[in-house]
C-alpha cells in the first residue's frame, strides 16, 4: 500500500506523518508537492498538520486553492482514501470535502496537551482496528480546533454514525470538562458520507511509539492499512 504525504509551504507536520507511516506501519510513503496534480499509484493521501501558508486568511483558507486539492477531490471520487490531521482537517473542511468548520478554540489560546478521545465509529476505513467505545490518548496542538457545524448537519453526522472520535474523560464520558476547545458535540474527528475521507484534530501520527508516551495512534494508521481498498 502506498501513502502520500502532501507538503504545502508551512506543513511542518509532514515529517511526523511520513515517519509514522514508514517506521510504524512499514508501508511505502512519499512526499507530494502541493503543486502536483498526479496522484496515480497512491492508495492513501495524508494532509498533515502544521500551518500551511502561515494560516493566513483562515487556517487552511489558502491551501484549499492549491492545485493538489482538485486532484484529491478526483482521487476521493474514485474511492481513494484521504485523511487530514490538524491543519489537514482544516483544509478538508475549507475545501468542502468534509462538512463543518474549525473555529478558534473557545479558550482563545493555542492548546498543546494529551487528550482522551472515544472511538464512536469503528467500522470506517480509519478506525476498523479500534474497538467501539475505546478510549485513546492522543496529543492535540492547535489554536483553531473547535469543530462547528449547524444542527441539521450535526443531526445527520450523529444519525449516520459519522462522528469518528469524540473528546471524553478517562472513562469515555464526553463531558464538557473533557472538551479542550469547545467543539460541538465534543467532536474531534469525522468522516464523509462515503466513508473514505476523514479529518481529525488530534494527532495519531505523534502517538505511535512507546518512547513518545503513547502508541494509541497506531490503531488508526493500521486501520487505514488493513481496510479493504
Amino acid at each position: 500500500m502506498k501513502f502520500g504525504v502532501v507538503r504545502f509551504p508551512g506543513s511542518s507536520g509532514d515529517k511526523d506523518a511520513y515517519f509514522a507511516v514508514r517506521d510504524v506501519t512499514g508501508q511505502s510513503v512519499e512526499y507530494i508537492w502541493h503543486e502536483s496534480t498526479d496522484l496515480s499509484g497512491f492508495d492513501c493521501i495524508i494532509l498533515p498538520g502544521g500551518a500551511s501558508y502561515g494560516d493566513y486568511l483562515r487556517a487552511g483558507g489558502v491551501a484549499k486553492n492549491s492545485p493538489i486539492i482538485d486532484a484529491i477531490r478526483k482521487f476521493a471520487d474514485g474511492g481513494g482514501r484521504v485523511i487530514g490531521i490538524g491543519n489537514g482537517f482544516q483544509i478538508l473542511c475549507e475545501a468542502g470535502l468534509l462538512p463543518g468548520d474549525l473555529l478558534m478554540n473557545n479558550t482563545a489560546r493555542f492548546r498543546c496537551l494529551p487528550v482522551k478521545v472515544r472511538v464512536d465509529n469503528n467500522t470506517s476505513d480509519f478506525s476498523g482496528k479500534c474497538c467501539k467505545g475505546q478510549v485513546l490518548s492522543l496529543p492535540i496542538a492547535h489554536l483553531t480546533g473547535r469543530y462547528y457545524c449547524d444542527s441539521d448537519t450535526l443531526n445527520v453526522l450523529e444519525k449516520d454514525g459519522r462522528v469518528l472520535l469524540r473528546y471524553c474523560d478517562e472513562s469515555g464520558n464526553a463531558t464538557e470538562q473533557a472538551n479542550p476547545n469547545g467543539s460541538v458535540g465534543n467532536i474531534a474527528g469525522v468522516v464523509n458520507e462515503r466513508g473514505n475521507i476523514a479529518g481529525m484534530m488530534p494527532h495519531p501520527e505523534r502517538a505511535v511509539e512507546d518512547i513518545l508516551g503513547s502508541t494509541d495512534g497506531v490503531c488508526i494508521l493500521q486501520s487505514m492499512v488493513e481496510a479493504r481498498l
Partner: peptide, 14 residues
Amino acid sequence: AYEQFDQTLLTNTV
C-alpha cells in the same frame, strides 16, 4: 504558559 507551545511536533519529544 507551556500549554500554548507545541511540544510534540517532530515526534522527538520524550
